[in-house]
Write a protein that binds this DNA or RNA. Structure first.
Length: 537
DNA sequence: GGGACCTGGGTAC
DNA sequence: TTCCAGTACCCAGGTCCC
């Protein structure tokens, strides 16, 4: 077959796809995609990848045999020895993966689907496929219309996320019996059963079988499991015995090496098809190759990538996911028929911003950074971000920031619009901070603009639910003390709450700057009608 | 020189 | 008929500012 871009090749890395004719499936995908903007974009991406490959192979070519020996010694002494000393074999981690989860749920609810090739999703995109459909090369993240070419009798069922969530929650509560801190996403779970095992007489394999049996008896869903001393190994192990099976990796260096060495680098979670191709250009195909070519890895990769790849190859990873890990950002995006109409884009931007502000509201968060994402009609992606000097959460604030970023990109034909927020902080914390700064805000820092009621109104508005309080405090203060406007020595900027200074000139300068930024940002925002009426002074 | 920020890209599910 | 998603995280490289 002619040369095919990496992203267009049939991807066999999924349970149940082993028997598929890879070349034939790739041919169908290519024939269906050829000439489309998607195809052209894949070709563009492929060219960039080829460039990276040329650079990395040239770099590898500069190493002499003596260099390699020297670097190997350094890697062994400086890195591997200390990593090995820090290994933790003490935990027993179980990774559970529900077999073709969405499809299994649909089969339980409609048993007639069981014998048919079936996938959950739409003609645009599939979420998952049952094992019957996988025999034809149909898999998750495959467009439905291509899947139908591979398997014309495929039944595509629309997703019912509420139903999947309900069953996922049910499974999570079952698993809490074995680990009260279980980490459950929609269709997979990580458990630390070290403590639970101490209360049991059976082997690890017995206990894991019991867990899987319990899930099956209560939900009808089969699942696969991997058991090892850390989450990464457990996850790789799960993949080896799918569906409805389990794999245990003994917690010692030799067993771990024997388990990992023959596997493809692609089995490492975090190594996708691009990294796989990049590594294969360096003749690194298996995990064993990663270790034996550690000098090349050290020479050609960035430090973090080198560390990640070599540690993964050695089976070294954090034992478990920390409980304290919190969410870093949230986003919403929508794909639609490509358009450059300002009116249509505004409506989409409004609806995406509204969803995002509801998400922030639901988790009581506010954010510092707003990022706009657009996918143009040629499938190229642009992101544009802005970091504010104050926290935002209101729909209008998100919308106007995203919209301004979008206006700068026009004219352009767009097929996807997304908005993301980062720098998340609990809203209650910010409100408490604001509340604490209200006194300073009113009695000191803003005195110098006290006669400008309109400006004050705009300023106060940013206090959100505290705005009426801020306003009345301002008015009260204005009446009580009209003579001596002065800047407090306890200076916290009431606008951004980040800047602190005991230097009153500096503080005033900063507050002025912040207010101007705010006014600029607030200019086009409609007032919060009903909640805060503009008072007359 | 280092940190923060911005943008693009890779990956998982 | 349909014609490649949505959410989240991490890393790398560039720029700017102190």
């Amino acid at each position: 077959m002619e040369f095919v871009a990496t992203g267009l090749r049939f991807n066999p890395h999924k349970a149940g796809l082993g028997s598929v004719n890879e070349e034939e499936a790739t041919r169908v995908i290519v024939d269906t995609s050829k000439g489309t903007e998607f195809y052209k974009n894949e070709e563009r991406k492929e060219k960039l990848l080829e460039k990276r490959i040329t650079e990395v192979t040239e770099l590898a070519g500069t190493l002499t045999e003596q260099d390699k020996e020297r670097i190997e010694k350094l890697v062994d002494e400086q890195f591997i020895v200390s990593w090995e000393q820090e290994r933790d074999f003490s935990r027993v981690i179980v990774h559970l993966d529900m077999d073709a989860f969405f499809a299994s749920v649909e089969e339980i609810d409609q048993p007639s689907l069981k014998s048919l090739p079936m996938a959950v999703g739409s003609t645009s995109m599939l979420s998952t496929a049952n094992y019957e459909a996988r025999k034809y090369g149909v898999r998750s993240a495959m467009p439905g219309f291509i899947a139908l070419k591979l398997c014309p009798q495929l039944v595509i069922v629309p997703p019912r996320f509420h139903r999947y969530c309900a069953i996922s929650n049910q499974i999570a509560s079952l698993l809490r019996e074995f680990d009260s801190h279980v980490h459950m996403s929609m269709d997979e779970a990580y458990m630390d059963i070290t403590e639970y095992l101490k209360t049991q007489s059976g082997t690890i394999d017995d206990v894991v079988s019991k867990i899987r049996q319990k899930v099956f008896e209560n939900t009808g869903i089969t699942c696969s499991a991997g058991v090892a001393c850390n989450t990464m190994l457990a996850k790789i192990a799960t993949d080896l015995n799918k569906p409805n099976g389990q794999t245990f990796v003994q917690p010692d260096t030799i067993s771990i090496r024997n388990f990992l060495n023959p596997l493809s680098v692609r089995k490492i979670p975090g190594v996708g098809r691009v990294t796989e191709k990049l590594l294969s250009s360096l003749n690194i195909i298996s995990i064993q190759d990663l270790i034996s070519n550690r000098s090349i890895l050290f020479h050609c990769m960035k430090r973090k990538t080198f560390k990640f790849l070599l540690q993964s190859a050695l089976g070294i990873a954090p034992a478990f996911i920390s409980d304290s890990e919190s969410r870093k950002g949230m986003s919403r995006e929508r794909t639609f028929k490509p358009t450059s109409s300002l009116e249509e884009l505004r409506k989409i931007c409004e609806s995406v911003s509204e969803l995002l502000s509801s998400d922030l509201e639901a988790e009581d968060l506010c954010a510092k950074t707003v990022t706009l994402k657009i996918k143009c009609s040629d499938f190229s992606i642009r992101t544009r971000g802005v970091t504010k000097c104050f926290f935002i959460y209101r729909y209008e604030q998100i919308l106007e920031n995203a919209w301004k970023l979008l206006l700068k990109e026009l004219p352009v034909e767009i097929r996807l619009l997304g908005v993301r927020v980062n720098g998340l902080v609990p809203r209650s914390e910010v409100l408490t901070q604001r509340k604490n700064s209200l006194e300073n805000f009113v009695s000191n820092t803003l005195k110098y603009k006290e006669n400008n009621a309109d400006l004050m109104y705009e300023k106060v508005k940013d206090f959100g639910s505290l705005a009426p309080t801020a306003w009345s405090l301002f008015r009260e203060n204005r009446q009580q003390n009209e003579k001596e406007p002065e800047i407090s020595s306890t200076g916290v900027c009431p606008v951004c709450l980040n800047f602190r200074s005991s230097n009153s000139c500096l503080l005033e300068k900063h507050v002025n700057f912040c207010i101007e930024r705010q006014e600029h940002a607030l200019k086009k925002i409609p007032t919060n009608s009903g909640k805060l009426k503009k008072p007359r002074i």
